[in-house]
Design a protein around this nucleic acid. Structure first.
Lengths: 212, 212, 212, 212
DNA sequence: TATGAATGAGCCTTCATTCAT
DNA sequence: AATGAATGAAGGCTCATTCAT
């Protein structure tokens, strides 16, 4: 994947550029939705508020999105897409599975720490949704879990990670730990340095809590 | 904690007895709320539906609860109270921190596996709430996190667990892993044996993922 | 039927009284709906406008009616019920089928001429409805068509009316003629004496247009 | 009327030819409107749906029609124009008023029976309209009522029909009977032979329901 | 204590119409 | 003449909460 990373990144840029040129309102609405949801919370985010923030008419929203839920799914899809691409690209540059894992943790923390609104939306607001939306979010999350699974498999192949525990369980531990850590950080009003926790979390995940 | 467990349990019993005798409708409403939310989901759980299930008038709800949110908080408070008490009591009977941790994991999984409705409500429905409710839920969760912290501290004192990582981080890993594992199990329609995963999860948490 | 007419009327009165005592808002809303629809037309009759006219809250409407369409159906049901009862009672007092037919025509014209708003609603506004509503209206109209059929049958038995044409066709002619006559009268702003037309219409229906 | 029929028909043809050549989209939209309304019902017939069916852009509609109501009026105008022309032409070929009346009834039934969509639109959908549209429809219907009046007058002159009842009343009976009969047939899903009823209806109208 | 009828604020979505291209 | 993206007003309905009984 290293060899293609140049093209990969170009491709993303092209996609982004064409997106912004062809569907400027789509992007406007997505960005407005992130801000409005982060500022007002999920339930107080009326479609009209998002439209106003995006500078379009209420009805215009429905030219680009099926309904209100579709706005939320699309927000997550767009943002998570970028999120995952960045992490996938960065981890692919690293050699060992352990380095890849550290990169993943650092970037997971880094990207959310760098985007206050996005962190609130993904960790708090987007979870206030019904089962149908949750399932769509899970679908979108799949590729990210796939990246984690890939790193675990590589680690097992390299004999860095143990092979006696099933991968889904390991993945649940990793994702659960990261997610819980970020949520705690958000709910504590982001008072401390989240990214700085990455090495310790990596250490904890790989070595566990047992004394040597 | 062992020393006080007698008093602790007595206190609980007294509270329970007085509750059930003096405020039978309070309990009725709590139980009805769990069922209604589990069956219909958070957003389709109107106050009137809970009242009907509880066999009381809509207005009666407001004699026992400040508002709808208060019902939800109370549901979590009541159920989590029992949940934590059970686990605290059981872990206190064990000798080593490692045994206590395994007990905690087994019971965490066991109690939710034994109560289908409660599992749905705590893992899925109760999260569809606003920030204020989330913060109250966190407050209620505090004692449980305290139990986990206690075990970690004991483990460090016994030199079973490492002391070079701060306790909140370890706690986040433990709770995050358990929570993510249960949520996955619920969202997979509880198809597999959750309690059976306890030893593997315990192993993973204590030893990490690094090959010996 | 003559013998029971006393009881029949009493029964109606009792029903009316109990109705008005037990569900005063139901009646209020029905009456308000007739007025609002007659004044504003079907599509400009917002639920909120009906509620305001009835002196109740918008939400109260939905305690008595399933939805907006249900208000309309109920209006027709209530008013048509009285309409039919009156005509059934009056025709039953007459001896011959011909007299009964004249009574029916006179009262059909008379009741609508006496109630300006009701005439507008039944002849114009209620027809602006979808198939489902139209079918419900037809169902409500059935008893009235049954009264007409009864008179035709009696007339045939008495050898007053011809028996060589099927009854539905005769009924369609009678109802179609009456309905068209009333609609024309309403659309001509009720400029002429509708009831005065009754004998001529009766004559026309019974004898046809052929010269002696 | 016979004398002028040549000019009348020529005029129609000229109008038709110039229409079809100069404004092809006008016709396209009219035909699309009939189909869309018949298939979807009046209220579900959005302008955009008609435009799509006609193969033109939404905005194009407004180059040919003032507004949505204008489309509907024009549909009725076009279709009713043909309807009336056909009947006027055919009746003018008959000798006696009685024959003309039978022809009118047969063709009224025949044309609607031959055009399923048109029957639904005229008998059911177009009636779901506001007073203003209803009045325009009545204006369009005038020439047809004129044809009926003409036949009645001829019949009276020929001493075939009675002269002791005013013509509007007779016309209302005739039109009301025909309309009611067709509407019943449409609402009964056109299960029986409508045209076959023509002689019996003619008989009923001319002779009335009185036995010999 | 308990009732439940009544309240009324609040919002997502549709769709006829416009206008810059 | 033709397009179709954009507009934005408008309204049916829900449901947490109240209060007279």
């Amino acid at each position: 994947m290293n060899d293609y990373s140049f093209i990969f990144v170009s491709d993303v840029c092209l996609k982004e550029i064409s997106m912004k040129n062809n569907k400027p309102k789509y992007k406007l609405i997505i960005e407005a939705a992130v801000d409005v949801i982060a500022e007002n919370g999920y339930h107080a985010s009326q479609v009209s508020k998002i439209a106003k923030k995006a500078g379009v008419a209420d009805g215009t929203i429905y030219l680009y999105f099926k309904n209100k839920e579709d706005i939320l799914v699309s927000v997550f899809e767009e943002k998570m897409g970028q999120f995952i691409e960045q992490i996938a690209a960065a981890t692919s540059q690293k050699e060992t599975a352990s380095e890849k894992l550290l990169t993943l943790i650092s970037m997971h923390f880094g990207q959310l720490a760098a985007n206050h609104h996005l962190a609130i939306v993904t960790q708090l607001e987007l979870r206030q949704s019904n089962l149908s939306l949750r399932q769509q979010i899970n679908r979108i999350l799949k590729p990210y879990l796939g990246v984690i699974d890939g790193i675990i498999k590589e680690g097992i192949d390299e004999n860095l990670f143990r092979s006696d525990i099933n991968i889904p369980l390991i993945r649940q531990m990793i994702f659960g730990t990261l997610d819980e850590t970020v949520t705690n950080w958000v709910m504590n009003e982001e008072k401390y340095d989240l990214v700085g926790l990455a090495p310790a979390v990596h250490d904890l995940i790989t070595k566990g809590i047992k004394a040597s």
